[in-house]
Amino acid sequence: MKETTYEEIVRNLKNRVYAPVYFLMGEEDYYIDRISDYILDTVLTETEKEFNQTVLFGTDTDMAAIINAARRYPMMSEHQVVVVKEAQGLRNLDDLTYYLQKPLLSTILVFCYKHGSLDRRKKIVAEIEKRGVLFESKKLKDSQLPGFISSYLKRKKIEIEPKASEMMAEFIGADLNRMAGELEKLVITLPSGQRRITPEQIERNIGISKDYNNFELRSALIAKDVLKANQIIKYFGENPKNNPLQMTLAVLFNFFSNLMLAYYAPQRNEQGIAAFLGLRSPWQAKDYMAAMQKFSGNKVLQIISAIRNCDAKSKGVGNPSISDEDLLRDLVFFILH
């Protein structure tokens, strides 16, 4: 079995099609946790788990103990499950190669290898791909977060307004475990019978202002709305804990960097720009289309440089005393003029 996607792995697990070894690796914990938890929750019945489910930790065990556990036969069950958490802490991982040459098919052996990936040139990788499932869990790009949010909620038969999705993406960022927790909070707080999440609900339950947030600041800059931009800066200055400058700079840098790329899109329409930037839908390209009418390519380059300079000053480089609010105000003035 070759390396596969998260969706394919879950589909096979739901159909009770199991591999003898799952090696789950990568920088994004969320998918690793979801797959391993699903295996722990569903493969065995509660009665079977007592004798046939083993959870080990890479920092507290070794490959010899793991292989010995994997070679045990299940007791009054079709399968046994052995899950190795924090597998990145294991020594002598290459010793697994000997087990992989003839794995016990009644054992489902799962490795959760976080914050990194195996060198794909190693023999062990080829052996895993030959007899098991190798899955790399990659960090999502910022542009992919609204899609993740929509898909997560769709599985619960709930819709989310595009603006609300953007607000969540920009406020939470690419921490998918935290994002899932906040989305669950929104689902629980939905009024009875309502199946659509709005910006107002996010404002009430997550603590993001629907009118004064990074999404609205970006919109004000695209529209060159000086009054609205300054109102947002003032609000940020009064509520610095919920609106840290670093988060705002990250949002602006991401947008203007993508805008610079958009100038090179073969087709400068919504579909062409969405495809070129890897956006989930043409709707997300509307802001880039509007910004290209307001900012020249040369100005965008200058803005990117100004954002970097602002970031350096916010960290004390060449800046003895300017507040974050004043730094942002100066940056916004430069962008708008």
Rank of each mutant, 00 (worst) to 15 (best):
Lys122Phe: 09
Ala306Ile: 03
Arg195Thr: 15
Asp326Gln: 13
Leu44Tyr: 11
Ala70His: 03
Leu186Gly: 14
Leu145Tyr: 01
Leu90Lys: 06
Ser150Ala: 10
Arg131Cys: 11
Gly207Tyr: 01
Tyr212Gln: 01
Gly132Phe: 04
Glu46Lys: 15
Thr248Val: 09
Leu279Ser: 01
Tyr264Val: 00
Cys112Ala: 08
Ala285Arg: 02
Met25Gln: 15
Leu336Gln: 10
Ala262Ile: 08
Tyr30Phe: 15
Ser219Thr: 13
Gln101Asn: 13
Arg16Lys: 09
Leu96Met: 06
Ile197Ser: 11
Ile158Glu: 07
Val83Leu: 06
Pro191Lys: 15
Pro146Ala: 03
Gly26Thr: 04
Asn239Phe: 10
Leu104Pro: 00
Lys141Arg: 11
Phe333Gln: 11
Asp33Ser: 11
Phe276Val: 03
Gln267Met: 07
Ala229Asn: 06
Gln101Thr: 13
Arg196Lys: 15
Arg196Tyr: 09
Thr248Ala: 03
Met168Pro: 07
Ala164Thr: 06
Val43Trp: 03
Met75Arg: 09
Lys224Ala: 08
Thr248Gly: 05
Asn258Arg: 03
Leu109Trp: 10
Lys313Pro: 00
Arg268Glu: 08
Leu40Phe: 05
Ala250Lys: 09
Gly58Phe: 02
Met260Arg: 11
Phe57Gln: 10
Ile35Asp: 00
Glu203Thr: 11
Ala87Gly: 04
Ala180Val: 12
Met260His: 12
Lys210Gln: 13
Leu336Thr: 05
Leu140Met: 12
Ile67Asp: 00
Met289Leu: 09
Ser209Trp: 07
Phe253Thr: 10
Ser323Asp: 06
Ile66Thr: 08
Tyr263Gln: 02
Pro320Gln: 14
Ala275Asn: 10
Glu325Pro: 00
Ala220Thr: 11
Phe215Leu: 11
Gln88Asp: 14
Gly278Trp: 06
Val21Tyr: 01
Leu245Arg: 02
Asn242Asp: 12
Ile322Ser: 05
Glu184Arg: 14
Tyr99Trp: 06
Lys313Asn: 05
Leu221Lys: 03
Arg34Val: 15
Leu190Ile: 05
Gly237Tyr: 08
Lys163Arg: 12
Phe236Gly: 06
Glu159Tyr: 04
Gly318Phe: 08
Glu78Tyr: 07
Phe148Pro: 01
Leu134Pro: 00
Glu161Ile: 06
Met63Cys: 09
Leu56Arg: 09
Thr61Met: 05
Arg196His: 08
Gln293Asp: 00
Leu217Trp: 03
Thr189Pro: 00
Leu336Ala: 10
Met179Leu: 15
Asp287Ala: 05
Ala180Ser: 15
Pro103Gln: 13
Leu176Trp: 12
Gly58Ile: 07
Glu200Asp: 13
Lys85Asn: 14
